[in-house]
Nucleic acid binder design. Structure first.
Lengths: 237, 237
DNA sequence: TTAGTTATCTGCGTTTTCGCAGAATTATCT
DNA sequence: AGATAATTCTGCGAAAACGCAGATAACTAA
């Protein structure tokens, strides 16, 4: 089912920001040996909403969107993730939040099952502390997001979504500008609005010279100008 | 400045859910010895927005609201906390998120400075893991909140705020019903709307027999009925 | 290249939410 | 208890956002 690839070990992995690199050398070897690694092609689910996750995923390369659907079928992008990021780990095993992860491009992802992970937690203090710090920081960010989303206009939320997407999954073009290939629908799922509204905001920002379009691809022409739209929320951005 | 009280040590503290209780006996004594403890009267700031926090606070008794104001002066309640909860700790010392904490009633709060806290992290694996798990769970909750708040109507957000407030800071009356003493403004700051809208929703819920009012105090008459308003979001609630 | 499919853009009427303002109610202080 | 202050409630017009629908543009595959 999954394409077969040569596994890239932790020792030869170039993703220095990966948390696993914080374990001591002995453990790096152990994790490298017992971890599972898969390359997921663009669009494929890494793990699906609804099915339980028995460990944690660490992205070695590529970009991923973490999604969650509601009862009514409306889907939401919870966050975007790239190389070095962790996903799927749950604080409490019983909880069954319907969260899924989809590769936005070909993504190489390592999986550590719960047994291996907890063993690493117990034996690598700094590893555990770093992951605790990561969660703490992410929690702050999420709380800030909550706070500001309650105050922002739809235009501002869309501007935020563009900056956020640019930061995590944006690609630089030859002029050094940030290019975003997410669809209007996906940006809407980040901004908490609908595709039409995203379209309207993008048109407006294009008229103001902040963005340009290359087909469906968004190019940030004036990064400072976009940031200025959100100057009220600078603690957050 | 702060009222003087007899410090209640960790050994004699009845708040079993406190994370500090997860440290080993030797450390419990050490923390108990070096921790700072203050009883804050209702309405007083435990720590203020803007000033940096050099450690973590653990609530021994009482209720607290964690608030954050934006540039425009609009204030928001980030979360409510009660006995056993932790607050103030920051993943990264440099970050200066303007977060404050205010006692909703007389609250006894213990403070562990960063030095003591990190020493405890390094020497108490289970303590660190539990706090990591706590953050992980809180992050999930916050992400869910983000997701659902993007979809809820204002009425639903207010119903959520009432249930949330009831769960954390609600008090049972003689009939076993949950009573909430937060102001309309405070509920609005949780729901991400304004006091008028909260008022309108409460009136409506009162007419439907879900709530009753005792002065300004809200009494949940039909808890199941309120939950039913949010049945679409049950994963979250 | 061309036809077909999918995504994006934009106009427009509807719905929701906001926020002011004044009335009513509740709490506080002497 | 009575006066004063603060909060809450509610009506109403304005603003924002939604969502349908049709037009346009961009991709895909033969």
């Amino acid at each position: 089912m999954h394409p077969k690839t040569n596994k890239i070990s932790c020792e030869e992995c170039a993703t220095t920001s990966c948390f696993v690199k914080r374990t001591n050398p002995e453990w790096l070897g152990k994790i490298s040996k017992f971890k599972n690694q898969v390359v997921y092609p663009k669009g494929q689910y890494i793990f699906s909403e609804g099915s339980p996750v028995f460990g944690a995923y660490f992205i070695q390369s590529g970009d991923v969107k973490i999604v969650s659907s509601s009862f009514s079928g409306r889907q939401n992008i919870v966050r975007l993730a790239k190389a070095g990021h962790m996903m799927g780990h749950k604080g409490e095993a019983k909880e069954n939040y319907p969260i899924g992860a989809v590769a936005l491009n070909d993504a190489r992802v390592c999986f550590l099952n719960n047994e291996l992970l907890y063993d690493a937690f117990l034996n690598n203090t700094h590893f555990t502390i770093e992951i605790m710090m990561f969660y703490s920081k992410e929690l702050r960010k999420s709380e800030m997001r909550n706070k500001f989303f309650a105050q922002m206009t739809t235009d501002e939320k869309v501007a935020y979504a563009i900056l956020y997407a640019g930061e995590i999954v944006g690609q630089k073009n030859s002029k050094g500008q940030i290019m975003i290939t997410l669809s209007r629908q996906e940006l809407a799922q980040i901004a908490g609005t609908n595709a039409e509204q995203v379209s309207r905001t993008i048109s407006q920002m294009k008229n103001e010279g902040l963005l340009s379009l290359d087909g469906r691809c968004i190019c940030i022409e004036n990064l400072t100008g976009v940031y200025d739209l959100l100057s009220e929320y600078e603690q957050f951005i």
